[in-house]
C-alpha cells in the first residue's frame, strides 16, 4: 500500500502506544515484508509462515506497552518477536532443527530473488550493494540476526571459536555499514 506520509520512529511509537489504527497499518506496510522474510528463513511453508506473521502483528499490537525504547529500536524488538515466534512454532511442531540449518544457505538465495516491490525502501539498490558483502560476513549475520542461532550453534556451524564470534560479528556489521554509507 502506498503511504503518502512517513512517521519518525518516535512518532510511530507514540501513536502505537495510543492504539492508533493508522500507525498499525503503517507498521504493517513498512515492516511486514522484512519480518515475513525472517519467519520464512525458519518456516518454509508459506501458509504456516503467514500464520506466524499474523501472530507476530497481533502480539505487537496487544503487547505494545511492553516495548521499551531504551533497550533498542522498534524494528529490533519486532524482529525478535518474529524470530522467537518462528522458533517456538518450529519447536511446537517438532520440526527438526538440523534440516533447517542445512537449508539456511538455500533460504538466503531464495530471499534474494524475491523483492517486495511495494517497499518504498530501495531494497533493490541496497541488495545490489549487499552483493559486495563477503560470504562469511553474510552467513554470520543471517544465522544470528535472521535465524536466531545461539553463539554456540554458530561456532559449530562456521567452525570458528566461540570467543571470536563477537569480533567476527563486529567486522561483518562494519562492512555492512561501509557498504550502506555512501
Amino acid at each position: 500500500m502506498s503511504q503518502t506520509f512517513t512517521y519518525t520512529e518516535e512518532e510511530l511509537v507514540a501513536l502505537l502506544k495510543s492504539n492508533d489504527k493508522r500507525a498499525f497499518e503503517y507498521l504493517y506496510d513498512n515492516y511486514a515484508g522484512a519480518l515475513y522474510a525472517v519467519i520464512l528463513k525458519k518456516i518454509e511453508d508459506t501458509i504456516l509462515a503467514e500464520d506466524v506473521l499474523q501472530e507476530v502483528f497481533v502480539k505487537i499490537w496487544n503487547n505494545f506497552s511492553t516495548y521499551d525504547t531504551s533497550k533498542g529500536r522498534l524494528f529490533t524488538w519486532m524482529l525478535n518477536i518474529s524470530r522467537n515466534l518462528a522458533i517456538d512454532t518450529l519447536r511446537s511442531k517438532s520440526f527438526k532443527k538440523q534440516s533447517k540449518i542445512q537449508n539456511s544457505e538455500k533460504a538466503v538465495d531464495y530471499v534474494s530473488n524475491n523483492i517486495n516491490e511495494d517497499e518504498k525502501f530501495d531494497a533493490l539498490g541496497i541488495r545490489n550493494q549487499l552483493n559486495r558483502l563477503s560470504q562469511e560476513h553474510k552467513r554470520i549475520m543471517n544465522m544470528a540476526y535472521f535465524e536466531g542461532f545461539t553463539q554456540d550453534e554458530i561456532s559449530k556451524q562456521l567452525g570458528i571459536p566461540l570467543g571470536t564470534i563477537k569480533t567476527r560479528m563486529r567486522a561483518a556489521i562494519l562492512e555492512l555499514k561501509k557498504i550502506l554509507q555512501p
Binding site: A32, G33, A34, Y36, A37, V38, L40, T46, E50, L53, G72, R73, F75, T76, L79, V108, V111, S112, N114, I115, N116, E117, D118, E119, F121, A123, I126, R127, L130, M141, Y145, F146, I173, L176, K177, L180
Partner: peptide, 17 residues
C-alpha cells in the same frame, strides 16, 4: 548498528500474499 541491520533486513524482505 540497528539501523544498518534494519536496512539489511529490509533489503531481504518478502511481501506476504
Amino acid at each position: 548498528i540497528e539501523i544498518s541491520l534494519e536496512k539489511y533486513a529490509q533489503a531481504n524482505s518478502i511481501a506476504p500474499a
